[in-house]
Write a protein that binds this DNA or RNA. Sequence first.
DNA 1: AAATCGTGGCG
DNA 2: TCGCCAAGATT
Length: 299
Amino acid sequence: MPVATASQNASARPRRAIVRWYRTHGRSLPWRDASTTAWQVLVSEVMLGQTPVSRVAPAYLAWIERWPDPETTAAASPADILRMWGRLGYPRRALRLREAAIVITRDHHGTVPTTDDELRALPGVGEYTAAAVRAFAYGQRAVVLDTNVRRVLSRLISGTERPPASLTNSERELATSLLPRTSKSAAEWSVAVMELGALVCTATKPVCSACPVRTDCAWRAADYPASTVAPRRQAWHGTDRQCRGRLMSVLRESSGAVPGALLREAWDDAAQRERCLDSLLDDALVAIVGDDEYALPSS
DNA sequence: AAATCGTGGCG
DNA sequence: TCGCCAAGATT
């Protein structure tokens, strides 16, 4: 009889309950089809960073129909990539996805790499995305720690409403200790706990009555104490982000070169507009194509 | 390591 | 109305 540690015994039952819940309640999302390639999983993960599932789903389907693999993506112009990205937000993600496609095509024979080091060397791929590709595309045993998983574990195990502001080693160790031994079980556990956070253990108004592990929940046992750490507020109105977004919108909607006058109409504050245009040029999201003429980069 | 980077839906 | 939030990465 193998000896199990106390923490393993304590976590085994809720873990099984979450996986069982997922098998009946998990959503069938486009990127969860068995036919989804590793590249397409990567596309979905990049799109899902900071953009809700409901808005990603249709954009993802249109995207992979047009550019189904790294080769076709690498061959597309930045302008086409940015127009197709549309209003998903954070357009630099789109540029990095294209750059990743170029690297994969050139250095990996068009095959998405399978190791953590190689994945994280790709533009726009960080700790979470590398783990997600390994688990969801390749069925590997990887610690997938996104905002949903962090929230579930903080409530279920730590008894706090929210996880720390930034990912800590303590969270990594906890998630590692909970990861099932076999790769197959680990990969399913990772989607399952993520899905629980997305559908039940939500940031606001969690549906605890529908939770498969409510009787194990440390946060519930402590009578749902409110978290003291205030989430960082996202300023928006009048920010550079709003200004950049406005300028990008004008460039996206125009088929060719855009006169500077059109950009000036889009944002009143001249100093801020120039600063943002400069930053967009720096980010290679915009190109100068003539005297006082701008466009999305053609290459 | 805290700040930065878009966008739209919802209560 | 407006603040909050959504599968993060980069610097």
